[in-house]
Each structure stands twice: as C-alpha cells, then as structure tokens.
Amino acid sequence: MIRVLLADDEAMIRAGVRAILASDPGIEVVAEAANGREAVEGVHQHRPDVALLDIQMPAVDGLTTAAEIHRTRPGTGVIMLTTFGEDEFIARALHEGADGFLLKSDDPDDLKAGVRAVAGGGAYLSPRVAARVIAGLRAGRMGAGTPSRHPVDQLTDREREVLVLLGSGMSNGQIARRLHLVEGTVKAHVSTILSRLGVRNRVQAAIVAHEAGLVDGLA
C-alpha cells in the first residue's frame, strides 16, 4: 500500500484529491495538512511514501516545505500539485528536488500515475508539464537554478548513452531495448548516473543532459 500525505490550504481541494486517490486500492491518504509546517510534522509522524504539496500555502510555502522534507526525511518522495504551470514555478520545484509536478487541472489518472511512479523511486511530470519543461530547456528558459553545474565528462561512454536516452524521456524499458541491455542493467546505470552527477532524480538528470547539449539532434 502506498502511503500519501496531502497538503493544501483549501479543504475542498484536499477532499477532491483524496477522493481521486481513494479510487485506487493501492493508495491510501494517511495524513492531511493545511500548511507547510503541518506537512513537515505530518511527514515525520506518519512517514508516508509520497507527500503531495500545493505550492502556495500559508506560513510555509510548498517549495520551502519540499526542501525541508528532502533534508530531514529523504525517504519520502515529493510531488508538487498546483494550479500554476509557469516556467518559474516548475524550475524552482525541480531545483528543490521535487520528484513530480502536476497541475490540479490534469487528468485524475495522471495524479494516480504520478503517485505510483514517485513511490517506486521514479519521477513524474504530467504530459502538459513535461511539454513545458522540454520547450523551456530548448529555449534556455529552464536553466536557472538547475543542476547544470555537474559535469558529465566523468561518466563512462555507456552511462553517457543512457543519460542521453533518459534525457529524451525514455523509460528504463525503452532504454534497455534501444541499447540491447536488460532492464536491471539500465536501472543500475541510472542509479550510478544520479550519484555521479549529484542529482536527486531522473528529471534533474534529464535537465543536465539537455543543458550539456547531449540530447540535441537525437533521432
């Protein structure tokens, strides 16, 4: 069972999100919070697998809350759930190490898919957010504050190949088929890549790949 903490200052929004998640028998909302301070306390008390955080909350905003959760409870994945899809919010969220970013107007299935992906140690951007990130990277708008400072020349040739395909949006299974590897080997490469680049998740690694120019012209 995937355990989720839900933080939003609007009770009606919390009720709606809780209802969506309740439709999945493998997901359980174990705690709710109306602000960032309550969210941090709830994470330490209930130890959820995933924290769903609104960006704009009173007392402590969602981005600050995400950073605090990652600092003090790194085992909990963080998904930003917001009405705001501007590049600035997305870039800041990814810089703070958010494992997922969804809009409140996204399809309910995206919400459940995101929770499952992040609980499994992956990262998730809803299709509309992913499109903005890719467009922003290509236009150079998403670079500020992202971990481009981490070099890629320390990677082996195979790790660089995996990073390029990861940056193009491929899953581990797709990368495995493309490079004729078993999926477990790809997963191990991804883990090593994240460690060597000093990034938290696949999203940040993909940003590194784009900013290093590795993905340009990939067929």
Rank of each mutant, 00 (worst) to 15 (best):
L125G: 03
R132F: 08
V129E: 09
V115Q: 03
A123M: 00
A130N: 14
D110Y: 11
L179D: 13
S105G: 11
S171A: 11
G114Q: 03
R177M: 11
R158V: 06
V133Q: 11
L125C: 09
V164Q: 12
S148M: 08
L165G: 08
D157Q: 14
A113L: 13
A135M: 13
D106E: 07
S126I: 05
A144T: 12
A135V: 08
P147A: 13
I134K: 14
M142C: 10
R128T: 13
P108R: 11
D157S: 12
R177A: 15
G173C: 09
D110F: 08
V152N: 07
L166T: 05
R132H: 14
S126L: 07
A117H: 03
Y124W: 04
L163Y: 01
V162S: 03
S168Y: 02
G136I: 05
V115I: 06
A135Q: 14
D157M: 10
R138C: 06
R141F: 07
L137D: 04
G169H: 09
S126Y: 03
A144K: 14
K112A: 09
D107V: 00
G167R: 00
M142K: 08
S168G: 12
A139C: 10
L103A: 13
R178V: 06
Q174G: 12
A144G: 09
I134T: 13
G143N: 13
G120Y: 01
P151Y: 03
E159K: 08
D106Q: 09
L165W: 12
R141E: 14
A119R: 06
I175A: 04
D157L: 15
L125H: 10
S126D: 09
Y124R: 00
A176T: 04
I175H: 10
V115N: 01
P108W: 04
L103E: 02
G140K: 13
Q154H: 13
G140I: 06
D153K: 15
G173E: 06
R132N: 14
G122M: 04
L111S: 08
S168N: 11
A123H: 01
D106L: 09
L165A: 14
A130Q: 15
N172T: 04
L111D: 01
H150F: 15
V164F: 06
E161M: 12
D157C: 10
R158C: 00
R141A: 13
D106G: 08
A176K: 13
D110C: 13
L163W: 02
V118A: 02
D106N: 09
M170W: 05
V129P: 11
Y124D: 01
